[in-house]
Amino acid sequence: MTQLLEVRDLRVQFSTAQGTATAINGVNLSLEHGQSLGILGESGSGKSVTARTIMGLLDMPPAKINGGEILLEGEDLLTATAKRRRQLTGPVMSMVFQDALSALNPVHPVGRQIGELYRVHRGYSRKAAKAAAIEMMDRVRIPAAASRVNDYPHQFSGGMRQRIVIAMALALDPQLLIADEPTTALDVTVQAQILELLKEQQAENNMGLILITHDISVVREVTDQVAVMYAGRIVEQGPTAHVLGDPRHPYTLGLSQSVANEDLKGRRLPAIEGSPPDLLALPRGCSFANRCPLADEQCSSSAPPLESVGAGRTSACFHSGKVASNVAYSN
């Protein structure tokens, strides 16, 4: 069976007034049917650009895809025609954005926006589309869906709007759902509901899920696999529990440590010093070298490739064997 999604050596650059910014610098990803993958990274790591490139949502220019392949069930999306892409978007892959309010059209009732998908892709009648929209709103647990189908986006609360966006994304039963920071704008109690909903829908429909977030605890909650991104590269990849529980890349370790926990009360947080590199001038060697406690000459002269560090795990670090025992972030 072919992989649901395979990204091979993807490279994306942005031309800016200051120069060329490297947003994605050789990313490889793969996802099977029914699998969930978390892409974890900070701002500028390239995680959102990766998602947008897969969905074909990059503004080009200024963005430019410099190489690579994105295979969706074996079909290369980068060479596909615009028409073919439109056919695939919705029924095969779809996306949930961070800001639900701007993802919905304010002047149309939500029911019509969901129903529109059925009318365009499946040729439903107006009436059938509306019924399907109500069913979809039920599925994402919007209370009294039948009576709210004619309401406008602003009449819903933030959590309900995100449910509607998810309903639209799921309407055509896609095999791949990409959720880009779907709960960042929401309150914790609502975030818990939405994450629950995503997990449940993913399992029920045997869908592939890519969850993009900066929040390590959200990745832990939801996904089986995780890819940690830093400065346009994946630095560590593998089963979520193993990667976050026993990191083999100093950056992953730093991330998981700098989240406060009970035992650190009254002490300093172990922080990664410094800040991420300038995307306009990426260093020749490892991008993390300037903040890394293990860095040596090799790290600043050449970039470490992703190498296997155990069953189903890879890490891009020359010293991945030493990470667990040797790294100490200032305390």
């Binding site: 007034a17 200051q18 500028g44 959102s48 200024p62």
Partner: peptide, 28 residues
């Protein structure tokens, strides 16, 4: 054109922290 960097950072990550430099920079 100086807005492109915004696209990278604000869509990426939770918030617009490493946001674009003011439109004056580089535009000149």
């Amino acid at each position: 054109m100086s807005t492109t960097i915004t696209t990278i950072s604000t869509s990426d990550g939770a918030d617009a922290v490493d946001r674009a430099p003011s439109p004056m920079r580089g535009a000149h």
